[in-house]
Structure formats: C-alpha cells, structure tokens
C-alpha cells in the first residue's frame, strides 16, 4: 500500500508549475531545457570505479585493450540529491514526520526531473539504508515513488555525517542536495552540512518537526518515551516545565537558523501537520502561496 497521497502527481504538477514561475529552489543551477547537447570530447583519463560506462572510450579499449574515460567539454547534466532521514525520530507525530518528508522528497524529485536534472535519493538513519542512483527524465519518477514508498522508519538515530560521507564517496559529480531530517542532533547536522558544503553539494536543510515537539500540551503525570534511546520516563509536567521546554526548543531552532545563515545554507522548517500543499510549496521555497488551480 502506498504511503503517498493518491493525488500526489496532480499536486506535484501544480507545485512544479508554481516553482518554475518563481524559480527559486532546489535546482537553482543554470537552466537546462530539453535533451542534453551533443558532448564535445576533449581529453581522456583512466577509468575509475563509479564512472559512467557510457563515457568509456570503447574504441580506444578495442585498440589498446585499456579502459579510458572520456572527458567532455560543454553543457553537461546537472545532478540533484535528496538525503531523506528515516530514523526512528521521523516516525513521531500524526501524521508522522517521515510521511511529510516523503511528500516533500517526491515534490523535489518531480521538479528536478521535470527540469531534466539527474536525481539521486538516499534514505539514511545511522547509515544509508536505501538509495536510488541518479536518474533522469520524468519517466523515472515512478522509480522515485517506489523508492519513497518502500522507505520505513528505522530503529536507529539519524547520522547525517555518515550519510554525507557515503554520498560524497559515491558521486564525484556534486549537485544541490536537499537534506530532509527531523533530528535534534545539532552537532551531527552541522558536521553533515559542512561535509556536503565542502564537497560542493550545496546543501539545503529542510527540518521537519511535529506540533507536539514545538509546543507540547501534556500536563500532569505522563510517561515520556524517547524513540531514539528507547527509554521511558515517568515525569510530572507542570506549566513551568512546558515553559522551560519551549524556551529550549526556541533556542535550538534559533541556533540552527543562525548557523545556516552563517554558512549560506538555505533552511526551511516544516511542521508535519501542515496541509500538504502548504508543506510542499514551503519546502520548495515558495513564500507566498498562490491559489490552487481547480
């Protein structure tokens, strides 16, 4: 059974149209429309594992029995990546943060594919648990959906640095990377984003949260179950506790916001409980919400 909304395609089309008009978002790279231009091969180098087999100079190989990878000059494919957090923290909330992240990832992938970008998607928890090597063309969107549908929450905490390392190691061709995460591991987030920035992946952070996390309304005797550690704790929550919690939460958000601003990393906060249309448009960086077409 699909976790995605049945009218998702319809909505994604709308989101893409809006995003195209505003042109500010994930694939803000130089515009590339239509099929890629004929490449102009200039140099060659030794084949390395991971190189596209289509770039292998098969003629030279036939003659010299040696694998060379052709280096081309001119307009090439642009890549976009999605790092999707599927740790246990993403299963919290109703709807869950993971469900919202799926929708956002689908929208971003759709827009990227529609712009003829290659899209790579990687789901991670303490490591990368599922992935889709960069695909191109809108016809591959079904693969994207299948992957997103197959992602389920993992019983582990999120480790963005590990996921960033895996991404960097796997792809030599960097591209804008959207990080969809709901973790509160601030050092981990910072290390992961720094790693991506360092390797030219232009990270964009989309942080998903649940309304109960931002403003919990529990009072009195409650049992708090930490899904990351699996520990339960009986506590008595008072108004004063909630007030202090809100203060800490605001400090965390403010700290993350300032960090992203300092590093020129686009940062978006999304509440999983928002309506899907608002969620998607905000994720794509659309501030003013145009009226939806009927």
């Amino acid at each position: 059974m699909s976790h995605l909304h049945p009218k998702l395609l319809e909505r994604l089309q709308y989101v893409w149209l809006v995003w195209r008009r505003l042109r500010d978002g994930l694939t803000a790279s130089p515009r590339h429309r239509g099929p890629p231009a004929e490449p102009q091969w200039t140099t060659s180098r030794d084949y390395c594992p991971g190189d596209d087999y289509r770039d292998v100079d098969w003629a030279f190989c036939a003659r010299q029995d040696e694998l060379l990878t052709r280096q081309c000059q001119g307009e090439i494919d642009s890549h976009a990546y999605l790092l999707l957090d599927c740790s246990c923290a993403m299963a919290v909330g109703e709807p869950s943060k993971l469900a919202a992240a799926r929708s956002v990832a689908a929208a971003a992938a759709y827009c990227a594919l529609a712009e003829s970008q290659r899209v790579g998607i990687y789901a991670f928890a303490e490591r990368v648990v599922a992935g889709l090597v960069a695909v191109r063309g809108r016809s591959r969107f079904a693969k994207v959906l299948n992957l997103l549908d197959a992602i389920s929450p993992q019983p582990a905490a999120a480790d963005l640095p590990a996921a960033a390392r895996a991404l960097v190691r796997q792809h030599q061709r960097p591209g804008p990377t959207m990080v969809l995460s709901g973790t509160y591991d601030l050092p981990g987030l910072q290390r992961g984003l720094e790693n991506l920035s360092y390797h030219g992946y232009c990270p964009r952070l989309v942080r998903l949260y649940d309304a109960q996390e931002a403003a919990p309304d529990m009072l009195g005797d409650v049992e708090l179950f930490d899904v990351e550690t699996g520990q339960a704790r009986l506590v008595t929550v008072t108004e004063r506790d909630l007030k202090y919690y809100s203060q800490l939460y605001a400090e965390f958000c403010d700290h993350l916001r300032r960090y992203c601003a300092r590093r020129a990393i686009p940062y978006v906060e999304l509440c999983a409980g928002w309506p899907e249309r608002e969620l998607l448009l905000r994720a794509m960086g659309v501030r003013g919400l145009p009226a939806e077409k009927r």
């Binding site: 923290a89 973790t183 409650v222 708090l224 990351e228």
Partner: peptide, 24 residues
C-alpha cells in the same frame, strides 16, 4: 495509575528540563 504515554523524538530537551529540578 499508569499515566498516558507520549512518544518524543528526542529526550534532549526533557532531560534538561527535569535536570533543573533534582528534588522532584
């Protein structure tokens, strides 16, 4: 007697909240 259970993404904030009142 068993209070309602709340699942939270992280215990970071709550630990700091309740660390403030040790006697409790």
């Amino acid at each position: 007697l068993r209070p309602p259970r709340y699942r939270v993404s992280t215990g970071v904030f709550w630990r700091r909240v309740f660390a403030r009142y040790g006697l409790r």
